[in-house]
Design a protein around this nucleic acid. Structure first.
Length: 289
DNA sequence: CACCATGTTCCTTG
DNA sequence: CCAAGGAACATGGT
């Protein structure tokens, strides 16, 4: 369940539960999720280490750890892929079916599960190193954004998914930001005019900020059973929580429904093998002057 | 059975 | 070198 806002809310939730805790032992139940780190290396490094901080970079979770005796610090890198989850359980509680890595913390345990085993929890920071600016930081300016888009012939929707451009935007928020900025997803990235670049810059920040604020107001449940795990927030949709979930996603997964602005039917198209949703009337293909 | 799914990486082709 | 497209990863929902 991961794009930037979901990861941010998860980080805020987990941080106080982990900070100061020492890893007593490590269970690796699916070795493929820790590649390229080996099981032996991960265990050797983690056992005895203390969580000092948890931060987010794009969609990655960065767990800072320190060995009190060895006086060494290092980073454990996590990513949820499309279906990954992380939560803290009491030690007696049963593990979910797809628990991939379990860190025993004494009375509690930290669990990383992923039904599809797509993503990772390891010591490899290479993917994090080459990421673009954080969209909610001061590093992300309209001028830099314009420069990064200039000269690209790729469709703007596809370009937004490139983590080197901006960190943390995924398939849902890419469509949502373009709708809010009234830009057609097929428009080549390099053809946005200055006004469109600024509108998109603003829309990205607004939709991500709103989603974080929204998610932060929802109590995070994290039990092993499916029902409570569905309580983990997703902006605009969640089973069994109708009150919270008004129409926040305006186009994503709404093919055939009326546009909230003009009532034209929302269209679904495929770009780079991913679904894109947009309003063909509100989002025009206006090129640079 | 078919198709779809919030992500990333690798490979091929042009 | 770049861009585009597709497959792969593995499981589950509809």
């Amino acid at each position: 369940m991961p794009e930037l806002p979901e990861v941010e809310v998860l980080v805020q939730h987990l941080c106080p539960l982990l900070r100061g805790k020492i890893i007593r032992s490590v269970q690796i139940r699916r070795e493929r999720v820790i590649r390229p780190t080996s099981a032996a290396t991960l265990k050797r490094v983690l056992v005895g280490a203390k969580f000092t901080e948890l931060t987010r970079r794009g969609k990655f979770l960065l767990f800072q750890l320190r060995h009190p005796q060895r006086k060494t610090s290092f980073t454990l890198v996590g990513h949820l892929g499309m279906t990954g989850r992380m939560f803290v359980l009491r030690s007696g509680e049963p593990l979910p079916k797809h628990a991939a890595v379990v860190l025993e913390l004494g009375r509690r345990r930290f669990v990383y599960e992923d039904q599809r085993y797509f993503r990772r929890l390891n010591l490899d920071e290479s993917s994090v190193a080459r990421m673009g600016p954080e969209p909610l930081s001061k590093d992300f300016t309209p001028a830099k954004f314009a420069q990064a888009l200039a000269g690209s012939s790729r469709a703007i929707k596809v370009k937004l998914l490139d983590q080197d451009l901006v960190a943390g935007v995924g398939n849902i928020y890419a469509s949502e930001a373009l709708f809010r900025a009234r830009i057609a997803p097929q428009l080549p990235a390099g053809k946005l005019n200055a006004e469109q670049v600024r509108a998109l810059w603003k829309a990205i920040r607004e939709v991500l900020t709103q989603a974080i604020r929204f998610g932060s107001t929802i109590p995070l449940h994290h039990g092993p059973d499916a029902a409570s795990r569905d309580g983990l927030f997703y902006y605009g949709r969640a089973a069994g929580a109708p009150d919270y979930y008004e129409e926040r996603l305006r186009v994503y997964d709404r093919a055939g429904q009326p546009c909230s602005r003009c009532k034209t039917k929302i269209q679904r198209i495929v770009q780079a093998a991913r679904s894109t949703y947009f309003c063909p009337k509100c989002q025009r293909k206006i090129s640079a002057r």
